[in-house]
Amino acid sequence: MAKSFVIELDFEACKGCGYCLEVCPRNVFDPGRAFNAKGHQPPVAARVDDCVGCQGCFYACPDFCLEVTCRE
């Protein structure tokens, strides 16, 4: 069975730069609509089932608010 992954995105810590959207080769993220307390719009991991765990978004995130882990 193919591996599946969990994407944890910290809504309040995100600054909404959109780098995860930009680097994802599987188009897992969508632009977010909701604002956090600091006025940023964090993206949403809308198609997490498409994630292949390349860690591109983890490496690209400058704000320590995104983690991709393999679901056991």
Binding site: K15, G16, C17, G18, Y19, H40, Y59, A60, C61, P62, D63, F64
Partner: peptide, 11 residues
């Protein structure tokens, strides 16, 4: 927002 410095720090 978008500053690459956090990427350096993370590495």
């Amino acid at each position: 927002s978008g500053c690459g410095l956090g990427q350096v720090h993370k590495r």
